[in-house]
Amino acid sequence: MVNKQILLVDDDLDILEIFEMSLETLGYSVITATDGELGVEMYKKHKPCMVFSDIKMPKMDGYELFSTIHDLDPQSKIVFFTSNDNKIKTRDAKINGLLDIMHKPVKIKDFNNMIKKYNC
């Protein structure tokens, strides 16, 4: 049983609920945050294996969250999970170490594969 933690950051509660439920059913340990700031705190606190973050969020958006966490921990594994993104910013983030980007809607199956891909 895998119990490495996954951090989900998204301001949409329903998204968080369904994916938390689905991933836990698959056996993952999931922690959630509803905005970028909380996301950073959660990361500091729990040091999850992987972070899946939306981009458009209040207080701190996905790009900022990425750069903050990545500065804190260059080894951090961060994947964007978003409905739209800024191509240039995404490219820059990728250059700086963003692992990947998933565009909603994402199947649970694909989510699972992404986690496995990056060994979490």
Binding site: D12, D14, T25, I108
Partner: peptide, 20 residues
């Protein structure tokens, strides 16, 4: 963009829910 964004999330939820 907003409409797209606002529909994508609920759709994702529905999709994930159906998967479940």
């Amino acid at each position: 963009a907003r409409i797209a964004h606002d529909i994508r999330n609920p759709l994702n939820v529905i999709q994930a829910a159906l998967e479940n």
